[in-house]
């Protein structure tokens, strides 16, 4: 048994954020909520979604692994309206996940389940020396600047406690510098200077579904994966992106 009702807008955002990196996913559902961890096809990035039971208006579930094609879910959620309620319902007999959208009309969709067995993929518990809390819009703007000069970008913490988004091409260079006085910065927790370099296309995919006022928690170290977390309603979404190393 699995039946859960949530506002369509939040679920759409969760699917949008996930499907930028991953083609298919296995939702591990139980009495506490929905969890899913997946790597992108190149195994460069990892996405982890946690939608606790209290996010839902109604939630009843036993333990199930629900494997779905994210592109199909994305298309269906693309048809959802923000004032609609979404009920997710597992049809174990037909091996399908039903999605029922309700407001003025009742619209029913049904998607086939994939045999994406739960990978038991765990998010590695990495300790980071630095954490930046920044508005998503500001970070996305800095990535756009960096993109003008190269396809990768360095995320740096300077010795004097600044957060620097730095990109260098063959002839050109781009740099966005934030410090504790910047309005877009909500907090900088810094213990040491650090620098890691990342593929820009991945960072853009990771931040694509964000609204400009979403608060990103960006965890940084030297030649370490970047961890980027934000909340969608009560749900939490986490990305890990492996660095480029010299």
């Amino acid at each position: 048994m699995f039946k859960a009702t949530i506002n369509a807008k939040d679920f759409k955002k969760i699917i949008d954020a996930t499907s930028n990196l991953v083609d298919e996913i296995c939702f591990e559902v139980d009495e506490n909520g929905i969890k899913a961890n997946a790597m992108d096809p190149s195994h460069v990035a990892l996405v982890s979604v946690n939608i606790p039971k209290d996010t839902f208006e109604e939630y009843i579930s036993d333990v199930h692994d629900i494997g779905v094609d994210l592109e199909a879910l994305k298309k269906i959620m693309g048809r959802a309206k923000s004032n609609e309620k979404l009920t997710l319902e597992l049809d174990e007999e037909k091996n399908k996940l039903n999605l029922i959208l309700k407001n003025d009309a009742v619209r029913k969709f049904s998607v086939s389940l994939y045999d994406v067995s739960s990978t038991n993929l765990k998010v590695p518990d990495i300790e980071y020396p630095n954490e930046v809390m920044i508005k998503a819009g500001a970070f996305v703007e800095a990535l756009k600047d960096a993109e003008l000069v190269n396809d990768h970008v360095s995320l740096k913490i300077s010795e004097d406690g600044k957060f620097i988004i730095f990109s260098k091409g063959d002839i050109n260079q781009s740099e966005t510098i934030y410090d504790n006085n910047s309005e877009s910065i909500l907090d900088l927790k810094i213990t040491e200077s650090s620098k890691s370099t990342f593929n820009l296309a991945y960072l853009k995919d990771i931040t694509k579904a964000t609204s400009s006022d979403d608060i990103l928690h960006i965890y940084l170290g030297s030649d370490m994966p970047v961890k980027i977390e934000y909340n969608i309603g009560n749900a939490k979404i986490l990305f890990l992106l492996a660095p480029r190393i010299e």
């Binding site: 790597m39 190149s42 195994h43 460069v44 990035a45 990892l46 765990k122 590695p124 518990d125 990495i126 990768h152 370099t197 593929n199 370490m224 994966p225 890990l240 992106l241 492996a242 660095p243 480029r244 190393i245 010299e246």
Partner: peptide, 14 residues
């Protein structure tokens, strides 16, 4: 030149 590494490389460390 820098090289893209895989995220799995960081699983083993932990």
């Amino acid at each position: 030149k820098n090289k893209q590494v895989k995220i799995e490389d960081f699983f083993k460390v932990n």
